[in-house]
Nucleic acid binder design. Sequence first.
RNA 1: GGCGACGUACCCAAGUGGUUAAGGGGGGGGUCUGCAAAACCCCUAUUCAGCGGUUCGAAUCCGCUCGUCGCCUCCA
Length: 471
Amino acid sequence: MSLSFRNTLGGALEPFVPREPGRVGMYSCGPTVYAPAHIGNFRSFLFADLLRRYLAWKGYAVTWVMNITDVDDKIIRDAQREGVPIGDLTARYTETFLKDLRTLRITMPDVMPRATEHIPEMVALVETLLERGHAYRTEDGSIFFRIASWPAYGRLARIDPEAQRVGERVESDEYAKDDVRDFALWKGARPGEPSWSTAIGEGRPGWHLECSAMSMRYLGPSFDLHTGGVDLVFPHHEDEIAQSEAATGLPFVGTWLHCAHLQMGGEKMAKRTGNVARPAEIYAGGTSPRALRLALLSAHYRASLDFTEASLAAAASAVERLSTLLAALDGYREERAPDPELPALLAATRERFTAALDDDLSIAPALAALFDLVRDLNRRLAERAISTSDAVTAAALIRDLDRVLAVAEPDGEALPEGAQALLDARAAARAARDWTGSDALRDQLAALGVSVEDTRDGQRWRLTGGNDGTI
RNA sequence: GGCGACGUACCCAAGUGGUUAAGGGGGGGGUCUGCAAAACCCCUAUUCAGCGGUUCGAAUCCGCUCGUCGCCUCCA
């Protein structure tokens, strides 16, 4: 079976065929940096990361672009409130965002273009749209996309533009336009707002325009994959398609992938309603980043996921199970003949894992394959049924699969000050069968956040307490 | 109102026409261990929201009912 995705455009499960064999261009709508992103946002970035990692693992040369929206109504509003230039605010939250990405082990995108650094590309796009008759100016210097000029409008979201409900908010839009459904490409300058002097006038870019201009700047007029949350399907991505294809005359994106929402307490996590949890709060509660990562990754990306304390605890236990096995395999020493069944077991696991992810990134069966192997290996370990080199081979497979998942390795390996001396002393005490001394040392280590376990292959330690100073 | 997704054990979650309904978490019992921890073994859904229908056969297909959620607003 080959790699397939459920394309939002058309809704069918389609074999993935990149435009250029072996190379993939992928764009993800990134954050608007006026506040720390919440874990609902990170669910969608984590999904994009899983996609990117899996494509890379399969051998594709991936170019991943994620924009940073650093000019926007809310940014302007909050910067004014604080009395600082928008750049101060966006620099601060961009830094927070990048740190959060790293902590969650999200691969750094190859390019993270800022909107404010791509004004010329956006202006060029608007000029083309004006020339081609798809855009018009209004009295205040704004420029709108004329939906009536683009018959394919509504194809992605499967909506009939004619039937669009005209709500009060649409009508109350502050910018005058010919048709309420038209969307702003360029917003005319207003007093007190940042603006750029350009060939199309003084103003600032509309949100949809940024993504079209920056994705095409780095990936070309047509590229393979575009991801985002389902809430972006309409109007954001619909608008991106309209303005991009109207400007270039070429198909914009091959496959659109949208991640379902993260819910909390039965409703969508959203800044607007205040129903949010942020990574920093989760870590402060003692949960490790990789547990959060697995919790957000473990449901299929198109299924909505309810975030709860229980889901976090389950993920934390699962993640511990993986790293405990890796530690056991790493420390295992048994000079014996290789286990003849092991190669087939490992190969079957890899096959199940791959077949699952090939099927529209079905993570649950992929995890099932991995955990079946975990149980099997633990059993063999307990029975001393594999050799030292078998253990090395098995650990290598798990680490290889974990290049896609990035949850198995512990977050931090650094021992606290003085812990090594205590560990050494305890090993000596155990060698002398001094149980009282050894237990006392174990208590001291526990107080330092180091839990010690005794195995046939010797003493093994791990850091407890979840967040342990990673990044 | 329009469009869309979904309802599987105590919790999360696979499975979408045919072997014993994956996997994770939790709970109960046991084994191993100086103790602890980890790990392993056994148990925890004769049943897939409800009701009809199609079929030799349905959690899977069709219809209806009930329930949940999302989008239609510059939200990931």
